[in-house]
Amino acid sequence: MIGPGEVPRLPRGVRVQPDRVRGGWVLLAPERAVTLDAVGQAILAEVDGSRSFGEICARLAAAFGAPEAQIAEDAGGFLSALRERLFLEVSP
């Protein structure tokens, strides 16, 4: 899992862009294109390489009016899965 003080960022070669033809957003990475749902897109929109995971969760909780613990669990799971595939880096 990602700690509240850790800062996630997309490494070089990974980017999120709108899918002009199918609609929605995609995460593009080496040899992979992953369709993002609205939740995944909202989480990644907060990942800017300077906000900590804790800050990201607080912002999402405010935006969606959801408990922060719940957001931390969902966003943490989502980001950890990306990290395992090396689509995301985390610095302390």
Binding site: D19, R22, E31, A33
Partner: peptide
């Protein structure tokens, strides 16, 4: 290709 939907 991009107009058709190719991403990669």
């Amino acid at each position: 290709a991009a107009g058709l939907g190719v991403l990669q």
